[in-house]
Simulated scan of single mutants.
Amino acid sequence: MSLVLSMVAGEPSGDLLASRIIQGIRARDSGLQASGIGGPEMQQQGMQLHYPMDDLSVFGYVDALKNLPRLIHTYLRFRSSVLKLRPDVFVGVDAPDFNLRLEHHIRQRGIPTVHFVGPSIWAWRYERIHKIREAVSHMLVLFPFEEEIYRKEGVPVTYVGHPLAAQIPVQPDKLQARLRLGLEPDGKVLAILPGSRASEVAELAPRFLQAASLLQKEDPALRFIVPLVNEARQAQFNVIAQRYPVKNLHCFRNRVADHPIAWDIMEACDAALVASGTATLETALFQRPMVISYVLTPLMRRLMEWKAGQDGPSLPWVGLPNVLLREFAVPELLQEAATPANLASACVRALTDTTYIAQTEEKFRQLHRELNRDTARLAAEAILATAQR
C-alpha cells in the first residue's frame, strides 16, 4: 500500500525543505498521498493543501499574540482532520510552537511523528527536550553536533545535512554573479543584508547605512548591494536610505527564479554586513567573510527573556557559522555594540585583510563539505522507517 503522509510547514524555508522530502519519498513510493499545511513548493510536488502556510506565518511574539485566535482555530481544525485521516506518519517541518504541540497530541493517539529541523535547544530553553521526547518519534536535524544532543537525551535522531549546502555551488563564481546583477566586474563590493522582517530593517538598516557611509569616506569607490525580499521592505528601506544617503548603493528586489536574489548578492560581494539568521549560513556557504549583527527592541528583548527564562543564549555565539565552527570565525556585533563605527571597522578587515579572508574562506569550504549530504534521501528513508515501525 502507498504511504499516507500528513505534513505541516509554516514559512517559505520550511516549504522548500518539505518539498524536497516529498520528492525523496515519492522517488521510493510513487503512490504517495500527501496532505497538510504548506506552500507552493509542496503543492508543486503534489501535496493537497488543507490550509496555506500563510495561516501560520507570524513574526515574533507580538504578532503571534495578535493572531492567537486565528492560530488556535487553525490548529484545532487541522488536528481534527489529522486524527480523522490517521496518516501512516506525520512530519512537522520547523514551526516548533505549532508542530510540537500537534505532534504530542497525535502521537499519544498512535500516529508516528517526525520533526524536521530541531529547535535550537542548544542555545535557548534546553528544557524543551522533555516535551520533544514525548512528542517526536524521530527527529531529523540539519547540523552534525545536534545528533549527539538528541541521542544523549533518548530521542531517535538522524543527521540529514543542510539542503542549502547542496543547492549553493561549492565554487562560487563572483564574476558571473556580478554580470547577472549588471555590476562592473572589478572593484570592492560590500553586501548589506538587513533582514527580511520590518522590525529587523527598522533597527539594522540605519546602522548599516551609517557604517557604509563611514567606509565610503575611506574608499570612495566601494560599492554596496542590497537584496530586499518584497515591495514592502523595499519601500521601508528606501525611506531609511533617504535619511542616510550612501553613494554607489544598488538595491535589488527578490525575484521568482530558481534561487533568491540574495544568493546573487552573496555570490557577487567581497564581504557582507548581515543580520543574524539563516542569511549568515547562506553567506558562509558562498564562502564570503562577513560581519554579523542584530538588535532587538527593548520590548522584544524582554519578551524573549521572559519566554526563555534566560537573558541570552547559552552559547557564546549567535551567528550560525560561528555556532557550527565553535569559534568566532567572524565578528558578531549585537545590541549596544552594533554602532556604525564598530560595524565599519569590522567590515574593513573583512574587505582588506587578505590573510584573514583566505583563512575564513577555507573554514567555510570545510563547513560546506560537512553540511553537504543527500538530505532528501536520508530524510525520506528515516520517515519511511518510522512509518513502518
Score class of each variant (00 low, 15 high):
Val348Arg: 15
Gln287Cys: 07
Met290Ala: 12
Glu361Lys: 15
Ile72Trp: 13
Glu267Ile: 09
Gln216Ala: 10
Glu11Tyr: 01
Lys217Trp: 01
Ile22Tyr: 07
Met290Ser: 13
Glu218Arg: 13
Glu148Thr: 10
Gln216Cys: 06
Val229Lys: 07
His130Tyr: 13
Ala350Phe: 03
Gln242Ile: 03
Leu315Arg: 14
Leu181Arg: 05
Thr375His: 02
Ala387Phe: 06
Leu249Asn: 08
Ser57Arg: 15
Val8Glu: 01
Ala202Gln: 09
Val160Gly: 02
Gln210Arg: 12
Ser213Trp: 10
Gly319His: 00
Leu3Glu: 00
Glu148Met: 09
Glu146Ile: 10
Ser2His: 09
Leu16Gln: 12
Lys363Gln: 15
Asp54Ser: 15
Pro194Glu: 07
Thr297Trp: 04
Glu200Tyr: 10
Ala284Asn: 07
Gln366Gly: 14
Val136Lys: 05
Arg389Trp: 06
Asn99Cys: 13
Phe90Arg: 07
Leu209Cys: 11
Ser13Asn: 05
Asp63Met: 03
Glu184Asp: 10
Ala329Cys: 15
Asp258Tyr: 08
Tyr51Pro: 06
His138Pro: 04
Ser81Lys: 13
Arg107Leu: 08
Arg128Gln: 04
Val4Gly: 08
Ile111Asn: 04
Lys307Asp: 14
Phe208Cys: 03
Tyr75Phe: 13
Ala262Ser: 15
Ser35Cys: 12
Gly14Glu: 00
Trp124Leu: 03
Val274Ser: 09
Asp29Glu: 10
Arg26Cys: 11
Ala350Val: 10
Asp29Gln: 10
Asp264Ile: 05
Leu367Thr: 03
Glu146Val: 14
Val155His: 06
Arg349Glu: 08
Ala191Lys: 01
Lys174Pro: 12
Asp264Glu: 11
Arg369Asp: 12
Phe364Gly: 02
Leu204Gly: 02
Glu200Phe: 05
Val58His: 07
Leu49Ile: 02
Arg151Asn: 11
Leu209Trp: 02
Glu231Cys: 12
Ser314His: 13
Phe208Arg: 00
Ala232His: 12
Phe145Ser: 07
Val291Met: 04
Phe224Trp: 03
Ala191Leu: 06
Arg180Phe: 06
Arg26Val: 06
Tyr61Cys: 09
Phe90Met: 14
Arg77Glu: 13
Leu49Val: 08
Leu142Tyr: 02
Ala341Gln: 15
Ala279Met: 13
His73Cys: 05
His73Ile: 00
Leu102Cys: 10
Trp317Cys: 06
Gln23Ile: 02
Phe98Trp: 06
Arg288Lys: 15
Pro156Ile: 06
Lys152Gln: 12
Asn238Leu: 14
Arg77Phe: 00
Glu361Trp: 00
Met7Cys: 13
Asn342Thr: 01
Glu218Phe: 00
Gln176Asp: 11
Ala308Tyr: 02
His162Ala: 01
Gln45Val: 11
Ala235Gln: 15
Thr74Trp: 10
Glu336Asp: 13
Ile37Leu: 11
Val274Leu: 05
Glu41Val: 14
Asp29Val: 03
Phe208Met: 09
Leu142His: 01
Asp173Gly: 13
Leu175Ser: 15
Pro331Met: 05
Glu305Phe: 14
Ser81Tyr: 05
Leu76Glu: 14
Thr297Tyr: 11
Ser276Gln: 09
Leu83Glu: 07
Val155Leu: 05
Arg349Tyr: 04
Ala95His: 03
Pro40Leu: 11
Tyr126Pro: 04
Arg302Phe: 09
Ser57Val: 14
Ala380Asp: 00
Ala271Tyr: 00
Phe145Gly: 08
Gln45Tyr: 08
Leu299Glu: 09
His50Lys: 14
Val91Arg: 01
Tyr51Val: 11
Ala95Trp: 02
Lys152Tyr: 09
Gln33Leu: 12
